[in-house]
Design a protein around this nucleic acid. Structure first.
Lengths: 360, 360
DNA sequence: TCTCTGCTTTGAACCGGTTCAGTAGCGCGG
DNA sequence: CCGCGCTACTGAACCGGTTCAAAGCAGAGA
């Protein structure tokens, strides 16, 4: 049963204005500029609104006039649901959401990548591309819309902000650590190099074609460290996996550990890959680090909890998220570049190579 | 340098229409109803748009007319950034995002809880309340806006959908497992019972006042199992912690383990609490499960990876997310209720109580 | 009494589209 | 040559607000 005065249709600002015999501007002001109204009238408006069941200005309409949505978009390369199974991505998201929270912004997770239908219409003021965009065209939807955006971990793009780490230096530190321990036979567990979904041993030709910046740089870091120590890079097997979760790491490591002579140390481009590798080592009856040393990349929480605790390259995931978000709140995000520090964290998964190698 | 024909101001649908001498409806149709235009004109419109730098209809305006945003909102009780440090919440989010992905929906993370400024204006079609709303009024912002919503893990609310688990049964199973093993001295690590941020030993009076449904139900489950086995509930210390992360679990367990006689088993309302408890046990020089058994709740991935692997109550976090999202896509979410199954997963953190208890 | 000032309130334009009931024009059958 | 049915396109209303210049008005000062 409806209150007598309550109109049948949708209750809008105009409904309230009409019921009270004031202009729509007045009702609007009651909500947005209370100080412009007399106390009395404002109360009348508000209480009439309540009686009529009016919940305040429709955010969409308000937004249209104001031109501001109060929301930050986040696009992820892979399906968004993958982000939640990647601890590094989760930390990043946490960093972003901290800023959103502080600034009263909604955080819009955009599935399907930067060029998806969702990206084309998502209601956001600015976008964080948490993805290593292999081709600039992939950002067309964002760029065309004229939205400010920042690329994280990916290429530096004109007109966009950038947040990243020195992947090459981090990777080099990891490799150098192993070399310092005396390792000479290494294997690499790689994230995707090219966006073709391919898996397997990446030969030098494919390595050269590496499209993803982070993968490419980390590979180069490993390589630089090795060559600086007088080793040949061409002898290092690189196992590429896509997707690159824990299970992929396990399979990739199994492949690497099947080489003869067996590698005495594994360089993984992520902790998840490394954690998978420790499982593969156990599968093969190998001790870590007794028989094989393993280094990760990321320093996600699980790295410290692992058995043995994982030696890895720490990067400030949350801080990356915070920076990316903060950068978009500034007047001109395009000019900003942040390269955050990395740091080798030595824990228990690395040690000297076994005294004598087995087999032929 | 601008193309001759390019207007100075913002390029809108009308700009394109004007440049081409057609009506705005035609331009709109070129994008939304291509089949209603002749091939030729459609191409003209599209190419003119491109020349003018028009990126297509403004999503906001389109949305306003259509009345549909194509976005699902998600509100979380605590700060959103906490959700990312809670593995259970992450799994839930993953489930939700799977559906969003499939349906080409954006997922809007709303910080500040269901009654926040953000919740009041977030541009969404429907809302998932992933929170155990202690007071109905807390949902006012959502309810007033007339948005369809579903409550997860919280109370069943009129007009809203519901997704949850049988918390009581799950908790009872956990307790029964310990009783079956022969334990008689138990302790409970509890999530918040009341939304007052208080921490400490929850006396019976406070237990009775428990506001959060999940906490209340789990407590009841523990209690039922104990009393069914002929034990007194009043002798069981309940340590409440807020927030309830791993560190809180460690502190709570330390408090419980300081009781004399010492409990031989700990019931934790979440795996994070339980994992913290294993740390506390180690701190105290106690073996798990030799000296003390620990049961968690949730079965997050870390539970299986822990040392010892955690006995816990499995609940389908991802599936909860999927259901909640799917439910909002239906015509009438309000009528739907899903109670998902729970299951005790016995692993290595539980065993018989130690043969003889030590000193008084 | 008249003017000036400052506070309230309003009218009208605007935000950028979508939609739907038409109308113009065209090919076609009769 | 007329009328009919289609297709392609248009005009106008509508979505639900915000904003800003200007108008109304009351009280103060002259």
């Amino acid at each position: 049963m409806e209150t007598e005065g309550r109109p049948a249709g949708r209750v809008t600002l105009a409904t309230v204005a009409g019921a009270l015999g004031v202009s729509r501007a007045t009702v609007s002001n009651a909500y947005n500029h209370p100080e412009r109204l007399s106390e009395r009238l404002r109360h009348q408006v508000l209480s009439t609104a309540r009686e009529l069941g009016y919940a305040g200005p429709h955010p969409l309409a308000a937004t249209l006039s104001r031109g501001r949505v109060n929301a930050l978009g986040l696009v992820y390369e892979d399906p968004m649901s993958f982000a939640f199974s990647d601890p590094a991505a989760v930390l990043f998201l946490q960093g972003v959401s901290e800023v959103c929270e502080r600034e009263d912004l909604a955080l819009v997770l955009i599935s399907g990548g930067p060029n998806s239908a969702v990206a084309r219409v998502a209601l956001v003021d600015a976008v964080i591309c948490y993805c290593d965009v292999p081709i600039e065209g992939r950002l067309a939807a964002i760029v065309d819309r004229g939205l400010p955006f920042v690329v994280v971990d990916g290429p530096r793009l004109p007109g966009a902000g950038h947040v990243g780490i020195d992947d090459r230096r981090g990777a080099a530190a990891a490799a150098r650590h192993l070399l310092d321990l005396g390792h000479t036979r290494l294997g690499v567990l790689a994230m995707p190099l090219v966006d073709d979904g391919w898996e397997g041993t990446a030969d030098p030709e494919r390595q050269d074609r590496a499209r993803y910046r982070a993968s490419r740089e980390r590979l180069l870091g490993y390589r630089e460290a090795l060559e600086a120590a007088g080793h040949r890079w061409s002898g290092v097997p690189v196992e590429e996996r896509s997707p690159y979760g824990r299970d992929a790491g396990r399979r990739a490591a199994a492949a690497l550990l099947a080489h003869r002579p067996r590698p005495t140390a594994l360089l993984a481009m992520s902790d998840e890959l490394a954690l998978g590798a420790t499982v593969a080592a156990a599968d093969a009856g190998l001790a870590v680090p007794g028989d094989v040393s393993i280094v990760g990349f990321d320093d996600v929480p699980a790295a410290a909890d692992a058995h043995p605790a994982l030696t890895t390259v720490r990067q400030p995931h949350q801080e990356k998220g915070r920076r990316a978000a903060a950068l978009l709140l500034r007047a001109d995000p395009a000019r900003d570049e942040h390269t955050l520090p990395v740091e080798l964290v030595v824990r228990a998964s690395t040690g000297p190579p076994p005294k004598r190698s087995e087999g032929p």
